[in-house]
Simulated assay, not measured.
Amino acid sequence: MPQAEGYSAVLAGATGLVGFQLLKQLLQEDRCRSLTVLARRPLPQLPGLEMPRDKLHVITADFDRMDEALNDIQADVVFCALGTTIKKAKSQEAFRQVDLGYPVALGEWAKAHGASKMIIVSAMGANEKSAVFYNRVKGEAEAALRVIGLPELHIVRPSLLLGKREEFRLGEKIAVLLGPALSLLMQGPLRGYRPVHAEDVAAFMRNIASVPQETLAPYVRIYENDTITTSRRKTRHQSAG
């Protein structure tokens, strides 16, 4: 159980925007004693960060055979940062597999292998009844994970993500350029829609992992974008002080 003495973790999606930031942070996190990364392709280089061989275990595998790849692994905390786009996936069916099928399979593995927490990146507006395909699939994934009955399921719903991606995304490029102005304009009811940096989302997830289990019954908590950004502003303010 992830208490003060530390925890072991599994991370899926380490080559993505949030996942890569989470990988870097977990490698530097003393409370994370061991980290198993499940990836579909080799990990990118981490400039300026030495890979601790005794802490990091990378499994490059076919996600359609996830149970087989993780067969001998045990973890207290499971992080899921899997996600794609229609452009990258090429079809709605392939998109659903990455954003719905794989996270649910990971959740089922976590439940079967005694993980105490699963922490997943979803998206603002996730709703299984949404008319928007992207939001609907994210909502369906959340609903399916709830049914599994994990001891703790933490769902993080960021707004537009800021950070350097391999592929070009027009919306995110505009958000980066207009970020400071958008933050000033988005006040009151619009505050929750502010773009958020991927490293801040990763830090938020990392902090959740270290919080002692709150209940013995299945526990689900959803964190909206405003909660993420507010938390990071408080952390920066405390660090500056």
Results as ranks from 00 to 15, higher is better:
Ser231Tyr: 15
Leu106Ala: 05
Gln187Ser: 12
Pro195Met: 02
Ile148Met: 02
Asp226Lys: 15
Met1Phe: 15
Leu153Gly: 04
Lys24Asn: 09
Val137Ile: 14
Ile228Leu: 15
Leu153Thr: 01
Glu128Phe: 14
Asp62Met: 09
Leu185Asp: 04
Leu26Asn: 04
Ser34Leu: 10
Leu170Gln: 14
Gly107Met: 00
Arg33Lys: 15
Ala126Pro: 00
Lys87Ala: 09
Gln97Asp: 05
Asn225Val: 11
Ala209Val: 02
Lys173Pro: 06
Ala105Phe: 06
Val121Ala: 08
Tyr7Gln: 04
Val201Leu: 08
Ala12Lys: 08
Ala105Thr: 01
Ala126His: 11
Pro180Asp: 13
Leu162Arg: 11
Ala209Glu: 01
Arg221Leu: 02
Ser239Trp: 13
Asp76Glu: 02
Arg146Leu: 09
Ser183Ile: 12
Asp54Leu: 02
Gly192Ile: 06
Ile228Gly: 11
Val156Tyr: 11
Ile86Ala: 00
Tyr134Asp: 04
Lys55Trp: 10
Val98Gly: 07
Glu166Lys: 15
Pro44Thr: 06
Ala14Asn: 12
Pro218His: 04
Leu43Gly: 01
Gln238Gly: 03
Leu182Pro: 02
Pro212Ile: 00
Asn135Ile: 00
Glu128Ile: 04
Glu140Thr: 05
Lys87Phe: 04
Thr15Ala: 08
Ile73Phe: 05
Ser231Leu: 06
Val104Tyr: 02
Asp54Gly: 09
Gln97Val: 03
Pro218Glu: 03
Leu26Lys: 07
Phe168Lys: 14
Leu160Lys: 04
Glu108Gln: 15
Val137Leu: 04
Glu199Asn: 04
Ala9Tyr: 05
Gly149Thr: 08
Leu177Met: 12
Phe168Pro: 09
Gly16Cys: 04
Cys80Leu: 01
Phe95Gly: 01
Gly6Ala: 11
Ser210His: 03
Glu108Arg: 15
Gln92Arg: 15
Asn127Ala: 07
Pro151Gln: 08
Thr85Asp: 03
Lys87Ser: 10
His197Trp: 14
Arg169Leu: 05
Ala89Met: 08
Gln97Lys: 13
His113Thr: 12
Val156Met: 09
Tyr223Val: 10
Ile59Pro: 02
Gly114Asn: 08
Ala94Ile: 06
Thr229Trp: 14
Ile208Asp: 10
Val18Met: 03
Tyr134Val: 00
Arg33Cys: 08
Phe204Tyr: 15
Ala181Glu: 04
Arg53Asp: 10
Thr235Asp: 12
Thr60Pro: 00
Phe63Asp: 01
Arg65Met: 10
Ala115Gln: 00
Ala89His: 10
Lys90Val: 10
Ala61Arg: 12
Asn127Phe: 13
Phe95Ser: 05
Glu172Phe: 06
Lys88Ser: 13
Arg157Tyr: 10
Asp64Lys: 13
Ala126Cys: 07
Gln74Lys: 14
Thr36His: 12
Ser116Lys: 10
Val18Glu: 00
Ser34Ile: 09
Leu145Ala: 11
Arg165Ile: 00
Thr230Asn: 15
Asp76Cys: 07
Thr229Gly: 09
Gln45Met: 13
Asn225Arg: 13
Val147Glu: 15
